[in-house]
Simulated assay, not measured.
Amino acid sequence: MKQAIPVILVLCLAVLSGCKIIHESEKTEMVSVGPEGDDARNEARLEDTFESQLLPLITTEPLDAARLREALASDGLEAAGSAHGNQGSGQGAAWNFPVRGSGVIVAAKLDTSARTVSVDVNDDGAADVTVQLGPVIRGTALRDIAPFYNFDDFRDQIEFAKLARAINDRIKPLLEVPEGDLVGTTISFVGVTPLKSPQEAMIVTPVELSFAK
Results as ranks from 00 to 15, higher is better:
77 L>Q: 06
127 A>Q: 09
133 L>E: 05
70 E>I: 10
80 A>K: 07
114 A>E: 15
98 P>V: 02
135 P>T: 04
201 A>E: 12
35 P>H: 06
42 N>W: 03
209 L>I: 08
4 A>Y: 13
137 I>E: 02
184 G>M: 11
137 I>R: 07
150 N>T: 12
63 L>Y: 03
92 G>D: 13
163 L>A: 08
181 D>S: 15
171 I>D: 01
112 T>L: 09
167 I>E: 08
169 D>L: 09
19 C>H: 00
14 A>F: 13
20 K>V: 15
109 K>D: 14
111 D>I: 06
196 K>I: 12
120 D>P: 03
68 L>Y: 06
127 A>L: 07
184 G>K: 10
94 A>V: 01
77 L>K: 04
209 L>A: 05
150 N>L: 12
142 L>G: 04
124 D>N: 15
153 D>H: 12
53 Q>E: 10
116 T>Q: 13
83 A>S: 11
185 T>F: 06
3 Q>S: 13
207 V>G: 02
198 P>H: 04
34 G>C: 13
146 A>N: 11
21 I>W: 07
63 L>D: 09
52 S>W: 00
26 E>K: 11
14 A>P: 03
141 A>R: 02
145 I>A: 01
150 N>R: 14
81 G>R: 06
14 A>K: 06
93 A>T: 08
164 A>N: 03
130 T>D: 10
161 A>T: 15
31 V>H: 05
50 F>K: 04
46 L>A: 02
27 K>I: 10
200 E>W: 02
189 F>C: 03
213 K>P: 13
92 G>F: 11
186 T>M: 09
56 P>C: 00
176 E>Q: 15
70 E>L: 13
174 L>G: 01
65 A>F: 03
142 L>I: 10
16 L>K: 01
139 G>V: 01
25 S>E: 14
89 S>P: 12
111 D>G: 13
81 G>T: 06
82 S>C: 06
157 Q>D: 15
27 K>A: 08
195 L>S: 09
173 P>W: 02
136 V>K: 13
175 L>P: 12
20 K>I: 12
153 D>S: 13
193 T>E: 03
119 V>T: 09
113 S>H: 07
169 D>E: 14
128 D>V: 00
160 F>K: 10
26 E>W: 03
160 F>I: 12
42 N>V: 07
97 F>Y: 13
199 Q>A: 15
206 P>S: 03
110 L>G: 14
122 N>P: 05
68 L>Q: 09
153 D>F: 07
188 S>V: 11
57 L>N: 07
39 D>L: 14
18 G>R: 08
14 A>R: 08
